[in-house]
Computed example of a mutant assay.
Amino acid sequence: MTSVSEEEHGTPAARTKVSVIDDDPMICQAMRLVLTDYSGGRLEVTSTSTDGATAVEHARRELPDVVLMDIAMPGMDGIETTRALRALPHPPHVLILTSLSPGGTVERAVEAGAEGFISKTDAPEDIIRRVMGVCREAPQFNTASQRQLIGDLSTQRFRSRRDEARALLDSLPEREREAVVLAAEGLTNAEIAARMFISERTAKAHLSSAGARLAMGRVQMARLVERADLPPRS
């Protein structure tokens, strides 16, 4: 594997200070070796920590440029620790050191102030490039983190549309809502009337009233029910 050169165009570069946080001391040691041995002197690991509170205290004293942050830690997890680090008077850049699970990790970490992600299995040169890149204010998202972020946003959008549809259905009177749901299942007016123990004329009236309230036709209301993804009826 190649290392990142200490000099670019013959001009020595200042060392970038890095702090590593992981609840596994072996991971901390491995990352220290990677950052030290493959950076050509460009990176200096100022400290390693196995918990969030200690990491924040180290950052207060050492003023690291970049923190590599694990997510799953006892007590203050990586998301909360990231938020605390970014609130310091001299906040470091934070790169999440993670396997990117469970779902929602990327979105939550970005909201807390993280600027990118590094997999613990990334090649050393890739890890170093991301550390140096974030110091140039360039977000560092590897393929896995980009894929998860897109997935999280898609799930969030689905939930938002589902909740909106459910709210619209819940705005209807109970009997009208029941008629709309039955119609969405493909029942005719006569079948809806039989299921609800009402006349066919009343079933039609319920659907007509619901359509007026929602400003939708029968097909649109069926799609609304589909989007609401209602739980199975008991």
Rank of each mutant, 00 (worst) to 15 (best):
A210S: 12
T81N: 01
P91G: 05
L33M: 13
A59Q: 02
G10T: 06
M69Q: 10
I21K: 00
K120W: 03
S99E: 06
S209H: 14
S5Y: 07
T121K: 02
E107I: 11
L35Y: 02
L85A: 12
Q29R: 12
E8N: 12
M216D: 04
D126A: 14
S99V: 14
L224C: 09
D170P: 00
L95H: 06
V180W: 10
E191K: 12
E164M: 05
M1R: 08
L214Q: 01
M216P: 13
A194G: 15
M76E: 10
R233Y: 06
Q220P: 05
V56W: 01
H9M: 13
R195S: 12
R32F: 00
V4H: 11
T202M: 11
R195Y: 01
V20K: 06
G133T: 02
E7W: 02
L43R: 04
Y38T: 03
S209W: 04
I198E: 13
A228I: 09
R83A: 15
D122I: 01
S49R: 07
S3F: 07
E6M: 10
V180M: 11
L187P: 06
P173G: 11
S209R: 15
T82C: 15
G116H: 07
T2H: 09
P89Y: 03
L85T: 11
F117G: 07
R166A: 06
C28L: 08
Q146R: 13
E178T: 14
G78E: 10
L169F: 05
E174L: 11
G217S: 10
R195T: 15
A205R: 15
V4Y: 07
A210N: 13
M76H: 08
V225I: 05
M196V: 07
L172H: 04
